[in-house]
Design a protein around this nucleic acid. Structure first.
Lengths: 129, 129
DNA sequence: CTGTATCCGTGCCGATACTG
DNA sequence: CAGTATCGGCACGGATACAG
C-alpha cells in the first residue's frame, strides 16, 4: 500500500535539504556516484545500517528521482541502484558541504578527531583560496 | 542548565547537514546574511515561526558558530544576531541548494507550483552551463 | 539475495502560557 | 522586547523476525 506521497516543501532550499537529509542518504549517494550498486554491496559498504532502513532510504531517493532501481531477470534475480542525472547534480554540492564540514570541524570542534572515513578528500586542500 | 552539548557527526557531510538542517535555519540564515537582525525583526520576517522555536534555532546556530549574539546595554536592551564568517561560508552552498531545488521541482514536481517566496532567485538562470 | 511487517525509543517542533 | 517552561504529536530510524 503506497503511502500518500508526502509533499515536498515549497521553498527550493528546504526541498533540496529535505531530499538529501536522511541518516544515510549522503553516504548512499556517495557510493552510488561511483557506479551502479547492488543492495548487498551497499549493505556491505555500510555495515552499520539496517537492511530495512537502507531499503527505505533507497525507496525515498527513488521516489525523489535521485536513484533509479533496475531489476534484472536472472536467476537469482539481481537489483541495481543507479544515480540519475538529477542525483548526480548533487555531487558537487555534497562535496562543498563536505569541505565546509571539515572547515567547520577545524574551527569549531577544536580537538574533534575527524572520522577516518571515506566521504572526504584525502588532503584537506585549501578551501578559502 | 545547559544541555550536554550534543556531539556533531564525525563525517563532514553529515556534520554540515546536521548544522544547517532545522525547520527554519535556512530561512533564518538567509535573512541574517543581509545584515544583523533583532529578534523581533526576524519574528516579523517569519510570521509562521513560534518565538520559542526561533530562539531555539538561533541558540543552536550560535552554539555551532553560525551566528553571533550581541547584547547592547541600552534601554530597552537590544539584541542582535549576526552571521559569522563560518556562517557566511554557507551562502554559496545554500544558493546552490536553492538552484538545485528549483531544478528538481521542475523535473519532479511536475505541476508543483513553486512558492512565491523569498529564498530563491528572481529569474531561474541557467544552472547547467 | 531482496525485500516486508511490527514494535518502539527519541528528537524535533508547534501551541500555549508565563517572566524580567 | 527578549526569553523561559511545559506539554504533546508525530516522523525518523534502529532492532528483530519473517517471506518470496
Amino acid at each position: 500500500m503506497a503511502e500518500p506521497m508526502k509533499r515536498l516543501p515549497k521553498l527550493p532550499v528546504e526541498r533540496a535539504l529535505k531530499v538529501i537529509s536522511g541518516r544515510w542518504k549522503p553516504v548512499i549517494l556517495y557510493h552510488v556516484f561511483s557506479g551502479p550498486k547492488r543492495l548487498s554491496e551497499l549493505k556491505r559498504m555500510m555495515p552499520e545500517i539496517t537492511q530495512k532502513v537502507l531499503i527505505h532510504q533507497l525507496r525515498e531517493m527513488e521516489e525523489h528521482g535521485l536513484v533509479r532501481r533496475e531489476v534484472f531477470a536472472e536467476v537469482p534475480a539481481r537489483v541495481e541502484y543507479t544515480a540519475t542525472k538529477l542525483g548526480l547534480g548533487l555531487e558537487p554540492i555534497l562535496l562543498a558541504l563536505c569541505q565546509w564540514g571539515q572547515n567547520h570541524a577545524e574551527a569549531q570542534g577544536e580537538l574533534d578527531e575527524l572520522a577516518d572515513c571515506i566521504v572526504r578528500p584525502r588532503h584537506p586542500e585549501v578551501i578559502a583560496a
